[in-house]
Amino acid sequence: MVRFKNRWLLVELLPVPAPLPGRAPTGQPQEGLTSKQIWAALKQSIITHFGDTGWGAVGSSLTIKYFSPRTNLCIIRVAREPHKIAWAGVALMTAIDGRRYVPHVVHVSGTIKQAQLAAIRHNREIVARYRARAKLPAGYQDSYEEYLQTSAQEIEALQD
């Protein structure tokens, strides 16, 4: 029996503050993203840029395994053979549900464990940047410590 081999893409979705042309900005904050919206936008991006053949290669194996609306960090599973089509589809995505985002592929791995470790490492780097920008002392306790612990537990709980 042959094992089904995957690639795991760790993607950070960076929001663009300017609204799309033709849409007036509203004073109300927009609701957060969901993994379903990301999957639909990724599907549309792949169909637009690679056609039905590209979607046929990727579609059966493409899943969003993890998404954090707080950090806009996402883990995507795709089959090993067509993973470059999915990667390109992510890179070419411009909007999700009418809101503009810049996707940043942080890490690509062959196992979910390595994607989890990269996500935890990435979260720690982001928190370190926030702390450096705020010029806080090294021993300062803030709400980020609790967030790092809960996010690490959440990410480590993922199963293949």
Rank of each mutant, 00 (worst) to 15 (best):
residue 158 L to V: 09
residue 40 A to I: 08
residue 84 K to G: 08
residue 131 R to W: 09
residue 66 Y to C: 09
residue 81 E to T: 14
residue 102 V to C: 08
residue 136 L to H: 01
residue 61 S to F: 08
residue 17 P to F: 01
residue 158 L to Q: 03
residue 19 P to T: 12
residue 38 I to V: 15
residue 100 R to T: 12
residue 76 I to F: 08
residue 66 Y to M: 11
residue 84 K to C: 06
residue 152 A to I: 01
residue 49 H to N: 15
residue 92 L to V: 03
residue 4 F to A: 15
residue 21 P to D: 06
residue 21 P to V: 10
residue 92 L to M: 14
residue 140 Y to T: 10
residue 22 G to Q: 07
residue 123 N to F: 00
residue 149 Q to S: 12
residue 97 D to I: 00
residue 137 P to F: 07
residue 36 K to R: 14
residue 94 T to G: 13
residue 127 V to L: 00
residue 115 A to R: 04
residue 127 V to I: 13
residue 4 F to H: 12
residue 78 V to K: 06
residue 124 R to M: 02
residue 120 I to L: 04
residue 85 I to Q: 09
residue 27 G to S: 04
residue 148 L to E: 05
residue 104 H to M: 09
residue 145 E to P: 00
residue 114 Q to P: 00
residue 120 I to E: 07
residue 118 A to Y: 11
residue 65 K to R: 12
residue 45 S to R: 11
residue 102 V to S: 11
residue 37 Q to L: 15
residue 152 A to T: 03
residue 56 G to H: 06
residue 150 T to Q: 11
residue 103 P to Y: 04
residue 141 Q to I: 14
residue 109 S to R: 02
residue 129 R to I: 01
residue 154 E to D: 15
residue 95 A to N: 14
residue 146 E to P: 00
residue 146 E to Q: 15
residue 75 I to Y: 02
residue 85 I to N: 06
residue 129 R to G: 02
residue 47 I to L: 15
residue 42 L to Y: 10
residue 117 L to G: 00
residue 28 Q to D: 10
residue 69 P to R: 04
residue 38 I to H: 08
residue 142 D to V: 05
residue 107 H to K: 12
residue 95 A to W: 02
residue 38 I to P: 07
residue 21 P to A: 13
residue 97 D to W: 13
residue 68 S to A: 00
residue 13 L to C: 07
residue 8 W to T: 01
residue 126 I to Q: 11
residue 125 E to C: 05
residue 131 R to P: 00
residue 140 Y to W: 13
residue 82 P to Q: 13
residue 63 T to G: 03
residue 66 Y to N: 04
residue 129 R to H: 06
residue 16 V to S: 09
residue 13 L to Y: 14
residue 14 L to R: 12
residue 93 M to G: 05
